[in-house]
């Protein structure tokens, strides 16, 4: 098969799986200096210290503290996935995204529904 006239952002796997979400279109981040990795590292340190500071120095009431540090954790997980696990690379997002979506939904399902079901009688603190 000849793929000479293909647009540059299309990856010629040759199996018809080139359909991509534009924002997730695969690209290889390779610069002269690992600036992306350093940015990711600094951001994760900042997020960790921020969450730690919130808890250690009681920056906000208890009711909102746990959701906020959980959101910070999810942001940090997203950073790890996007920057360090190269989610946008490879042969296209059609490969990893469905597996990842399955993993996240099962994981959140197990944890979320366990908490939910236990709240009825005994309570989860």
């Amino acid at each position: 098969m000849d793929h000479e006239d293909r647009q540059p952002h299309r990856i010629p796997t040759g199996h018809g799986d080139e359909v991509e979400l534009a924002i997730f279109s695969p690209k290889m981040h390779q610069t002269h200096f690992p600036s992306l990795q350093i940015t990711g590292y600094l951001l994760s340190i900042i997020l960790t210290l921020l969450a730690f500071g919130m808890v250690a120095y009681h920056w906000m009431p208890m009711a909102s503290l746990i959701p906020v540090i959980l959101i910070l954790a999810f942001i940090q997980a997203g950073l790890q996935l996007g920057i360090f696990m190269h989610l946008r690379e490879g042969r296209g997002t059609t490969w990893q995204i469905p597996v990842l979506a399955l993993a996240v939904s099962i994981g959140l399902g197990i944890v979320g529904f366990s908490i939910w079901i236990m709240m009825f009688k005994s309570g989860v603190s």
């Binding site: 099962i106 994981g107 959140l108 399902g109 197990i110 944890v111 366990s114 908490i115 236990m118 989860v124 603190s125």
Partner: peptide, 11 residues
């Protein structure tokens, strides 16, 4: 995920 669920329930 399972271990997290167990932990949160038994915490």
């Amino acid at each position: 995920g399972s271990l997290f669920a167990v932990y949160v329930v038994f915490r």
